[in-house]
């Protein structure tokens, strides 16, 4: 079945584009500091708001800082935040989701009650509220976004566990004489991995978007450290003088999200040919 899905031209393009962009993002995040021509915080006031030139390939910002270097550094920030947040939401969410789906009864009801209360907030609202509590900082965003997205993971994992534990191969394992724990570890969890991977990919995109939105609102990565979102925010007053300061960070976010979304589509088609 996956062979047939792979033969579809759209999927191939999705996969190639998605993997390429994601790989570039990771490369930029890891090797950015060595590749960038300047320190992202270094001021060069004479070059203030200048467009692309030989000295500053992508121009300079309102303090004359090199835009290319700041974009590279922003990639590192965004990728790190998204990665850490996904891991945080995934680990915590999976633990609660598995507990709820596995133990059922009161544990399930309690976990789902709290979870549903969190889900009753639109995602960004919860993140904003949590940022108000934690305060704007890089680690603060990770905690806030992680907590905001965790309920979705709990829901997906629990649903997967609940549906898989009713399958006949799981019943066969019980009849065989395997303990509940072995049945869970050997047959239920491995079959939950596919939906979790797809969710993790999609979530990576959401988090990059949310982080840039928070930073744009001034409640995310605090300046002067560059992030794509706060670069847009600080450049807004100079929209008519230096449009490149607006265009470039947004383009970075859009291309990254496009790549991750396409990777997510390709993964979904590949792991779940039904869609």
């Amino acid at each position: 079945m996956s062979a047939r899905a792979l033969a579809r031209p759209g999927l191939k393009f999705n996969a190639v584009f998605g993997v390429t962009v994601t790989a570039l993002l990771i490369l930029l995040a890891v090797a950015g500091p060595w590749m960038a021509p300047y320190d992202p915080l270094k001021l060069d006031l004479p070059a203030r708001l200048s467009g692309p030139s030989a000295a500053h390939l992508l121009g300079a910002d309102e303090f004359g800082r090199d835009v290319l270097s700041r974009l590279a550094s922003g990639a590192r920030t965004s990728a790190w935040i998204a990665f850490a947040t996904v891991i945080f939401a995934l680990v915590a969410g999976t633990v609660f989701g598995v507990l709820a789906g596995f133990l059922r009864g009161w544990t399930d009801r309690l976990i789902m009650m709290v979870n549903d209360a969190f889900l009753a907030f639109p995602g960004l609202l919860l993140a904003l509220g949590l940022m108000a509590v934690i305060g704007a900082s890089r680690d603060g965003i990770i905690v806030a976004l992680g907590l905001a997205y965790m309920p979705i993971v709990v829901r997906v994992v629990r649903a997967a566990v609940m549906s898989i534990r009713e399958r006949e191969y799981v019943e066969a394992s019980r009849v065989m004489g395997n303990s509940e724990f072995i049945t869970m570890a050997r047959h239920v969890l491995p079959n939950c991995v596919a939906p979790i991977i797809v969710l993790a990919t999609t979530m990576f995109g959401w988090i990059i978007l949310s982080e840039s939105a928070l930073s744009f609102l001034g409640l995310g990565v605090p300046p002067p450290a560059p992030s794509w979102g706060n670069m847009l925010s600080t450049a807004r007053p100079y929209i008519s003088q230096a449009p490149h300061l607006i265009i470039l960070p947004g383009l970075c976010i859009s291309i990254t999200l496009l790549g991750i979304n396409m990777l997510g589509d390709a993964l979904r088609d590949w792991l779940d040919p039904k869609m």
Binding site: E171, A172, S173, G177, N178, P190
Partner: peptide, 24 residues
Amino acid sequence: ADARALRRDMQIVFQDPYSSLDPR
């Protein structure tokens, strides 16, 4: 564990051979 040991002497074959084998 007692009941499980007893049950090892009995087995089941299900209707749908597509869902009774672990796909992984």
